[in-house]
């Protein structure tokens, strides 16, 4: 870098070409398709939106999706912050293995996750399933299964946001707090949590967006029962396959809207000095 001080400021034709390529790429891949979803949603004015909001089954699906997402985000946040502290502040055998394992949900196809959960919690042949079912607790083809699948796929998002922040903040502030008489909980609440606040918020938003949009794993474990376990993403597929494109676009638009809104709100309120 230091030996080429001019590269950063020089704006030759190559710079503009590269910029144009990047913009065109993002436009064709992301912006234009998303825009088309919105355009198709509002092709007949508010008809499509009103159509889905008047259908009680779809309203139920959307409510279910939001409930599941909120529960999953709460679980993933508590677990994520805890596991991040464990990974950054403590040494133990198998730490690298655990760290690698935590990335697995990002690399495994969600449909595999769904099948795996059925194998463990399935009501007839799963490991725990029959036992749980005899106690009157159904997991697969019910809301707990949908929550489980959603938690699984969004698991690493909080951790991957919080771990680098914890590493950067370092341990000294916590040690100072301890030596000033604070116990573990006081140290966490007064010192650690405020310093990782924005990492947690960002992780929560990403998890929320991911949880709202989960499709594959949920499709396998939910059973897709209309008015009971059908979530918003499953409604989109159903509508699309049934040639109700207007309804499919409208539901998809609502899903995308919430996710995009979350990310925009956070990047606006996040203070600049933290990044």
């Amino acid at each position: 870098m230091a030996s080429h001080p001019s590269t950063r400021t020089r704006r030759g034709p190559v710079t503009y070409l590269v910029r144009l390529l990047v913009i065109a790429y993002l436009f064709l891949l992301v912006a234009w398709p998303v825009y088309l979803v919105g355009k198709n949603t509002f092709a007949d004015g508010m008809d499509n939106i009103n159509g889905i909001l008047e259908d009680p089954d779809i309203v139920h699906a959307i409510t279910l999706t939001v409930q599941v997402a909120i529960i999953a985000v709460i679980i993933n946040t508590l677990f994520g912050v805890g596991i991040s502290l464990l990974l950054v502040r403590y040494d133990f055998p198998g730490k690298r293995l655990l760290s690698a394992l935590l990335d697995m949900p990002l690399s495994v196809s969600p449909i595999v996750v769904g099948l795996a959960l059925v194998l463990v919690y399935g009501g007839r042949t799963g490991w725990f399933g029959p036992g749980l079912e005899s106690m009157g607790f159904q997991v697969i083809f019910a809301t707990p299964g949908i929550v489980l699948a959603t938690v699984f796929v969004a698991l690493p998002l909080v951790i991957r946001e919080v771990v680098p922040v914890l590493e950067e903040v370092g341990e000294e502030q916590e040690q100072a707090a301890r030596s000033l008489g604070a116990n573990a909980w006081q140290t966490f609440r007064r010192i650690t949590l405020p310093s990782i606040k924005w990492g947690v918020v960002y992780g929560v938003v990403l998890s929320l967006a991911r949880s709202l949009g989960e499709f594959g794993a949920v499709k396998v474990v939910s059973g897709n029962v209309l008015g009971q376990t059908r979530t918003a993403t499953l409604v989109v597929e159903e509508k699309y396959l049934n040639f109700d494109k207007g309804g499919a676009y409208a539901t998809a638009f609502l899903l995308a809207l919430v996710a995009v809104a979350c990310i925009i709100i956070v990047s606006v309120i996040r203070p600049k000095e933290d990044r």
């Binding site: 502030q173 040690q175 100072a176 301890r178 000033l180």
Partner: peptide, 20 residues
Amino acid sequence: LSPQKRNVGFVFQHYAAFKH
């Protein structure tokens, strides 16, 4: 004894100021 029970004051090389 844990650090919080020792009643010692500790000053770090890099201050360890509570930034927030």
